[in-house]
Each structure stands twice: as structure tokens, then as C-alpha cells.
Amino acid sequence: MGLVGKLLAQRIALGLLLLFLVSILIFVGTQILPGDVAQSVLGQSATPEALANLRAEMGLDQPAITRYFAWLGGVLTGDLGTALTSGQDIATSIAGRLANTLFLAFWAALISVPLAIFLGLLAVRYRDRWPDKLISAVTLASISIPEFLIGYLLMYFIGVKLGWAPSVATIYDSMSLGEKLQAIALPVAVLTLVVLAHMMRMTRAAILNVMQSAYVETAELKGLSMFKIIWRHAFPNSIAPIVNVVMLNLAYLVVGVVVVEVVFTYPGMGQYLVDHVSKRDVPVVQACGLIFAAVYIGLNMVADIVSILANPRLRHPK
């Protein structure tokens, strides 16, 4: 385990370093914007004295480095600050929102990842024949249509015309799991359609690449069936690229769902972020940015870790 342990430790350390750098970037970015929190709070009624007082009160007269570390220290202890517009604790309001977003992403992933890999395997099995072409055409069409359009189409046909699922995906804590699932059926469908094509095509390409190798020919000459060859010999060797694209899409499911959440008025992170950007609530934007970055970096780190673990040369050194 020595070599693998070392590589994993390196990769995790790199992830943490990256997150630290991103936190600096987010902080600097929000500092560059004209005006500061004190100005936003006081708005039109700001007099120079009132501004100076409020700045001193909020610690804004401190140098940027001090403020950055005060913010970072707060983040590390779970204190994300206070929202300007509502005066609420950001950590508390984000917790519920993040849980909702992860809930949506989880179910979308649970359906789309196995489906994408299955379709990818199927496309390889029937390569260049009609099932392959049909799968490619349908998934490509679904990725080409903007997600808000798919959202409204599904809402109209399935939600309104057929009445199979509610067209507004509002969920409350008091709902049972079944009720929640029914509420999010449409946004999950939209997200699945959006991420499916990318993952399916990557799975197909990765496996086809491995299918060129000599050991697949060996398997063919053993008289194995096509499905056994793909499943036992090609798939285990294509895990690394597949996991990479899966993780990228999972990150999208958390970070990129803004539009879908807004379309279905789903109470998740995306909607929360959009609301507060329009209100110029800088501490909330900073907190959301950091959480999104953490999700992205974390999932990519998982992809790299799986790639390391999937490599037999690293797992079983000489």
C-alpha cells in the first residue's frame, strides 16, 4: 500500500491546497467589485460618517489580509457570516438549501449514471448498428436542447397535459420521501437527460478504445461472447476515464442546476444563489462560491482517487 498511500496523500493534499487558493480567489474577486458591504447596507442614505462608523463596526476598516483570515477562520469553524438582506445566519439557511440540492442531485445521479453506462455498453455491443445510432441520436438531441426548454416541455406535456407529476417542484421538510420523490420527478428527468449524453458517449469511447487492444483479441479468440468480453475485459480497463466524466457530471448536478431549480422553483442552492446575486448580498455569494468550489474539487479528487485505485500496477506493485 506504500505507493498507493503516498499517491493518495499527495492527491488529497493537492485538493486542499487548491481549495485554499480558490478561497483566496473568491475573496479577492468580491473585494474588487466596486462598493462594499457597508455601502450596500446603508444604500442611498450613506453619509461619510455613517459609512465610517459601520465599517469600523463590521471590521471593514481592517486590512484585507486580516479580513480574509477572519472570514476563513469563520468558514473553518462553520460560521459563514450573516446575510445582509435578511440578517439571517448564512450557515443555517444554506444547510437546508444544500440538503435539497444534494437530494435532487443524488436521485438524478442514481438514475443517470447506471443508465449512461448501460447505454454506453449497449452502444458498444451493437456498434455502428441501429441501437448504437438510435442511442447516440436521442442522447445528442437531448443534450442539444437547452435545459430550460426541456424543463418547460416536460412541464407542459407530463405535468399539465398528462398530469403524471407536479410541474412545480416545491418540497417541505414535512413531506414524506414518496411525496418528495414525486415532487422532484420532473427536474430529475430534465437533469438526467442533460447529463446522460456526455457520460454515455464517454463510456462508449473509452470502451471502444480498449476494444482495440490485444487482450480483447485474446478474449475473442477464447470464444467468449461479446457481452462477456465487454463486461469482463474492456470495462474494468476503462473505469478511469469513465469515472472522470461521471464525476464532472455529478459536479454539474450540484453546481450547474441553477437554471433547472429556477424553472421548477425548487428550493435549492441555485435558487438561493440567484436570489442573493440579484440583491448583491456579498457574504452569501462568497459562501455559495466556496461550497460550489468544494463540491467541484472534492468530486474531481474522488475521480482521481478511483483512477489510482483502479490501476492494477499501482494496487499490486512488483
Binding site: 487482450y215 483479441e217 475485459h233 480497463n237 483502479a310 492494477p312
Partner: peptide
């Protein structure tokens, strides 16, 4: 095969 190194599946 000529190249057994390539003809064996590295993952098994």
C-alpha cells in the same frame, strides 16, 4: 500471441 505483455488483460 507475439506480445504476451499486450495479450494479457492488465486488470486480471
Amino acid at each position: 500471441a507475439q506480445s504476451a505483455a499486450a495479450a494479457f488483460n492488465p486488470a486480471k
